[in-house]
């Protein structure tokens, strides 16, 4: 029974998250305390959820893409574009109190992110360019597009309706948490209540066999890139609404890397196949908690990068079959190095 628990995909991520939280608790005993002020809850835990919301969203989209054996490097750029277009539409609006204005702005950026996702998906499926390269194009150009939209400035808006998306609260909790929860539920429903999840895992695990089983893998792959674009777009809205401004240059910077990290920590393999949405959420929370922790103990926040580097490496080494094999078969490798190498390549 204990073995089963340890082998559960959430065991290690949750352990790490638990350890991080415990460390915080020991370091500052009021870490877990929640204060109700003006009908809103405040506290470090709420902050982690609130600030982590965009990352969680992006990671959810990324999970599905990685599950098909792909990758999306352009999410950071889409985050920036989406925030930029929304803020631009609002700043151009005449009637700032109109709810329609915000809805139009949100609609425009959601639509644009769907189109950008479709672009990525089309490059991968139609022209069959490797995902990492196909999405690199939008990663490079997307930053430029975001800056083009904002004319290289930081667009600041003061629209309470828009602000609500990223900074408002509902039932004493930040509204962004509800958006994330909503998207998580949507992703779960889409993948587990329809056959999409089965198809994604099948294509990611063995694309060739999936084709022979009659799957239309192109449609599946196209769908996940579109969904990933949508997630990044909404994350962009939350991020820009939270600070009431859009910064084409820095919004969503490093998001693609953090999202990939969250997915990998959550137990989804970069080679595709089985995916774990909840694992990804825990992974994203670990990254956010780590950042918060490092802020709190007063170390320069950029040091997080060093920690992340070792986490990436550790997780990948554990996932690497070669690494595990080398541990076991060191002696054999010494005697017949070619046997392992050639069979592994074959």
């Amino acid at each position: 029974m204990g073995g089963k628990l340890v082998r559960h995909h959430l065991f290690w991520p949750l352990c790490v998250l638990g350890a991080l939280l415990l460390f915080n608790l020991l370091y500052s005993p009021d870490f877990f305390s929640l204060v109700l002020r003006d009908g809103n809850l405040y506290g470090s835990l709420i902050d982690i959820l609130n600030f982590g919301a965009p990352l969680i969203l992006v990671s959810i989209g990324m999970t599905l893409v990685i599950a098909t054996g792909g990758i999306d490097l352009s999410v950071g750029s889409i985050v920036a574009i989406s925030g930029a277009i929304a803020c631009l539409s609002i700043s151009k609006g005449t009637d700032q109190s109109s709810i329609m204005l915000v809805l139009t702005a949100v609609g425009a950026s959601v639509l644009l992110s769907l189109v950008l996702g479709l672009w990525n998906g089309a490059l991968v499926t139609v022209t069959r360019i490797q995902p990492i390269i196909a999405t690199l194009i939008l990663m490079v150009a997307g930053r430029g597009i975001a800056q083009l939209i904002t004319s290289g400035q930081i667009i600041t808006v003061s629209n309470p309706n828009y602000e609500y998306i990223g900074a408002g609260s509902l039932a004493a909790l930040p509204f962004s948490i509800f958006i994330v929860a909503g998207m998580l539920v949507l992703a779960s429903l889409l993948t587990r209540r329809t056959a999409l999840g089965l198809f994604i895992e099948s294509v990611g695990s063995n694309a060739n066999a999936s084709r022979l089983a009659g799957l239309r893998s192109r449609t599946v792959i196209l769908a996940v890139y579109v969904f990933c674009g949508l997630c990044a777009g909404i994350a962009g809205l939350i991020l820009s609404a939270n600070v009431s401004s859009a910064d084409g240059n820095n919004a969503g910077l490093w998001y693609e890397l953090d999202a990939i990290l969250a997915v990998v920590i959550g137990g989804t393999s970069l080679n595709g196949g089985r995916f774990y949405l909840i694992g990804t959420v825990v992974g994203a929370l670990i990254i956010q908690t780590l950042t918060t922790t490092i802020y709190m103990i007063g170390v320069p926040p950029e040091i997080t990068l060093v920690v992340k580097a070792f986490v990436v490496l550790a997780v990948c080494l554990i996932q690497s079959e070669a690494f595990r094999k080398t541990l076991k078969l060191r002696w054999k490798k010494r005697h017949y190095p070619a046997e392992q190498e050639v069979t592994r390549h074959a």
Binding site: I71, I132, L257, I260, V264, L270, E302, I303, T304, L305, V306, V307, K308, A309, F310, V312, L313, C316, L317, S320, E321, A322, F323, T326, R344
Partner: peptide, 18 residues
């Protein structure tokens, strides 16, 4: 260890920046 170059150098990127 047959890990994708992309992910290993990504870790390298984090590490060097950090």
């Amino acid at each position: 260890f047959k890990i994708q170059p992309f992910i290993v150098t990504l870790a390298g990127m984090f590490l060097a920046r950090g």
